[in-house]
Lab assay of single mutants.
Amino acid sequence: KLPPGWEKRMFANGTVYYFNHITNASQFERPSG
């Protein structure tokens, strides 16, 4: 399970990334916590 605010998303080319809808942060590494 991801930390609060984070969700797993995917680009059109299939690349997975993680987006935080609270802070609008995005990253390729899975957030810890």
Rank of each mutant, 00 (worst) to 15 (best):
G14P: 00
A12F: 07
G33P: 12
T15S: 09
A12T: 10
P3S: 05
N13D: 15
E29G: 07
R30M: 11
R30H: 14
V16Q: 06
N20H: 05
L2T: 03
R30A: 10
G14I: 03
S26N: 07
N20L: 02
G5E: 08
F28K: 09
G14V: 02
H21R: 13
I22P: 02
R9I: 07
L2P: 11
F11L: 15
I22L: 12
F11V: 05
S26T: 15
Q27I: 07
E7Y: 05
T23Y: 06
N24H: 12
Y18A: 00
K1R: 13
G33L: 13
E7G: 04
F11Q: 13
I22R: 08
H21P: 09
S26H: 11
G33V: 13
N20Q: 03
G33E: 14
P4S: 11
L2Y: 05
W6N: 00
H21W: 14
G14D: 03
G5R: 02
F28L: 13
E7V: 11
S26W: 15
Y17V: 07
G5Y: 09
F28E: 08
K8R: 14
F19P: 01
A25G: 07
K1N: 14
S26K: 11
H21F: 15
P3R: 03
T15R: 11
H21V: 15
Y17K: 03
S26G: 07
N24Y: 08
P3C: 07
W6V: 01
G33A: 14
F19W: 09
Q27G: 02
A25H: 12
F19R: 02
S26V: 15
P4F: 14
G14S: 03
W6D: 00
N13A: 04
M10N: 07
T15N: 08
I22G: 06
E7I: 09
N20S: 05
S32A: 12
T15V: 14
H21T: 15
Q27Y: 05
Q27S: 10
P31K: 01
Q27P: 00
K1H: 13
G33N: 13
G33R: 10
P4Q: 11
K1E: 15
W6T: 00
G33M: 14
H21G: 07
R9V: 07
A12W: 09
E29F: 08
G33H: 13
S26M: 15
H21D: 05
N24A: 09
G33D: 14
N13V: 04
S32E: 13
Y18E: 00
F28R: 09
F19M: 03
Y17N: 01
P3V: 03
I22V: 11
K8E: 14
F28G: 05
V16W: 11
Q27W: 05
N20R: 01
A12S: 12
S32F: 12
M10E: 11
R9D: 01
F19I: 06
F11W: 11
Q27F: 05
E29H: 10
A12E: 12
A25V: 15
Y18W: 09
S32Q: 12
W6I: 01
I22F: 13
V16R: 04
K8H: 06
N24D: 06
Y17P: 00
G5T: 03
T23A: 05
A12G: 09
R9Y: 07
Q27V: 08
W6L: 01
L2I: 06
A25R: 12
P3Q: 05
R30D: 11
M10T: 13
N24F: 10
R9E: 01
F11E: 11
F11G: 12
S26P: 02
P3L: 06
E7N: 05
P4N: 10
Y18G: 00
P4I: 11
F28W: 11
I22M: 10
W6S: 00
Q27R: 06
G5Q: 07
Y18K: 00
A12R: 10
S32T: 14
T23S: 07
F19Q: 02
Y17R: 02
G5H: 11
K8M: 15
L2D: 05
F19E: 02
S32M: 14
N20E: 01
G33K: 10
P4D: 11
E7H: 08
F11R: 10
I22H: 10
E7S: 09
I22Q: 09
S32L: 12
A25D: 09
G5P: 11
H21K: 13
T15A: 10
T23H: 04
G33F: 15
R30N: 10
P4R: 10
A12P: 15
T23K: 04
H21S: 14
A12Q: 11
R30Y: 13
Y18H: 00
N24E: 09
